[in-house]
Design a protein around this nucleic acid. Structure first.
Lengths: 327, 327
DNA sequence: TTGAAAGCGCTAACAG
DNA sequence: CTGTTAGCGCTTTCAA
């Protein structure tokens, strides 16, 4: 493997000059520099960041640690947002998957002396437990942590917007399929649903509230239960998009048509929601933006600049499609 | 930041003993070792892999470089397969996204002196150009490269299996919506389709062959064209699942029912294909397995063991669901 | 504008 | 079983 010393030897220069040609080019005479760069290219030289990091004690690599078995849509959009931001500042992001790891991912980040860590959890309060880093600046996305900085989505505002919209187009009989009890996102969404119902002076009917584990299958079962009642709602809200697939199935089984006979709305704006038939009304998770904010916050911590907010809450957007309609 | 020398000082030991306690524990007396480990914990010590790598010239980090703007399903399953394999061997994978990077990802891998690189391309022959690494062992997934080792999927076998199945359930009039011409996957799939038609002594009717850019919208248009013909096929095969969404839409627009009036089949077995209505018949891309093979191949290269096959072709599986039926 | 030399934290050969 | 020491490749004083 070629080193600056190899280049120096070839050119009869000192290693310091070669080093400077790369890190402080203006300190090296034009012609010498040209020579060095050329020779380096020819020899296939690449700076050894390992060595330079040991010397400088500073890394330009940020870890995005994903707590899910599959990285998928959640990490993906988050990454894009974060990436765009950090690249402007000369950093790069590498993604680690904490699921099933032999050595915990946080330790890997620490041992590699990465510049900082972004932790991404899909479910507030439910993902794998993860060691907190005492060594590296960390920000948490969709996870509450006492010590770090938390970037959260405004689930209450999201459901609130959705409910207002449904109310405004005439819905009064609203069914709800919640996520699991131990997910904070789920709890917030459900509570907001109930709160809004009270606000509208509408009864919260227990038989119209079901619960699932975020999965299509659970929701199909749940929707079947609700639809088999003597009276059922004019709209079914599910706590995430995935469950709406099951809701669509149950509705179809009953010979009804989504968006005509009964409305459906979800949450997350996952990619396939636009491809459903009919396309699903939902609330977006502002992942791209959360990624950017996470990145900005992390870089501020890394560079030890200003005081940073403990919590930043980002609002999603109501996306109206054909699965909901006026009654 | 605490170092072995800090621990050594606290304990009145030499740094070598402390170092050994971590890397060659059997060389250190039981009690001394216990002491060291305890003190290290107490002080929050984490080995500085940067320093130890500089010394050892060996890394345990493998880079998975994704060439797509979004990592999504493709990289995701690949990663899971590769991860499972390398973790057994004490390696860890970090994912880099090459899209829009300021510094090319391969250079980053080289500069960080990672152990090796897995390059993941979604489309044979179409993704971003990427520098080849002269420094690090590399394997390519779904990308042909002269120098590296290539892990490919058997598109010909996949389409072949699908066609045999369609033929066996009575289909003789088969339409095809191809992907773009400059994607090798697409070309192989299309050519296999034609070859099979000839094999069955069936005419390849040009008006029943359309082309799209892998997108649902293109395929909707394409399917509309085919369905507006005086005579149309009993089954539409699209070169990927994503396009089947558009095919479903076009069929529905015409008042027909997928799986009853006309059959549809795709390719890739992307996650949502099972959630389509009706669930889509398709051919799986064996990404998990390809990930494992890529990992195994790469580790063999890294450890310089046996001779390695230049190309490994992995066969996907025909997945029969309700979108196709006997005519 | 260039060179000599120290040192980042760690490992391993060598000596005890 | 433990300590001393050289050196991995780089950056950065300091001196020329």
């Amino acid at each position: 493997m070629v080193t600056i010393s190899d280049i120096a030897k070839e050119l009869n220069l000192s290693i310091s000059t070669v080093s400077r040609a790369f890190t402080n080019p203006e300190m090296v005479k034009e012609v010498t520099r040209k020579q060095i760069i050329e020779k380096a290219d020819e020899m296939g030289y690449q700076v050894n960041m390992i060595a330079s990091q040991l010397r400088n004690k500073s890394s330009k690599l940020i870890a995005l640690v994903s707590l899910q078995p599959r990285m998928s849509w959640f990490t993906d959009d988050l990454l894009n947002g974060a990436q765009e931001y950090v690249r402007e500042e000369g950093y790069e992001i590498v993604t680690l998957n904490a699921h099933n790891a032999k050595v915990d991912s946080i330790s890997i980040c620490e041992r590699m002396r990465f510049a900082g860590i972004i932790i991404a959890a899909t479910e507030l309060g439910r993902d794998v437990e993860v060691k907190r880093s005492k060594m590296l600046p960390t920000v948490y996305v969709n996870r509450m942590s006492e010590e770090g900085n938390n970037i959260l989505t405004d689930d209450a505002a999201g459901i609130s917007d959705l409910m207002d919209y449904l109310y405004s187009i005439g819905h009064r009989k609203i069914g709800y399929i919640s996520g699991p009890e131990n997910s904070l996102n789920s709890v917030i969404r459900l509570n907001t649903f109930k709160k809004k119902m009270q606000e509208y002076d509408l009864p919260v009917r227990d038989e119209w509230i079901e619960r699932g584990e975020w999965m299509a299958e659970d929701a199909r079962e749940a929707a079947r239960n609700i639809l088999s009642l003597p009276e059922y709602p004019t709209v079914l809200v599910a706590a995430n998009d995935q469950m709406c697939i099951g809701v669509y199935q149950a509705i179809q089984e009953k010979g009804l048509v989504v968006g005509r006979d009964i409305s459906v709305a979800g949450y997350d704006n996952t990619e396939f929601s636009q491809w459903m038939n009919p396309p699903l009304t939902t609330v977006s998770l502002p992942l791209y933006e959360m990624g950017q904010i996470a990145a900005r916050t992390l870089l501020m911590k890394i560079e030890g600049k200003e005081e940073i907010k403990k919590e930043q809450i980002v609002r999603g957007e109501l996306i109206i499609r054909e699965s909901t309609r006026t009654v």
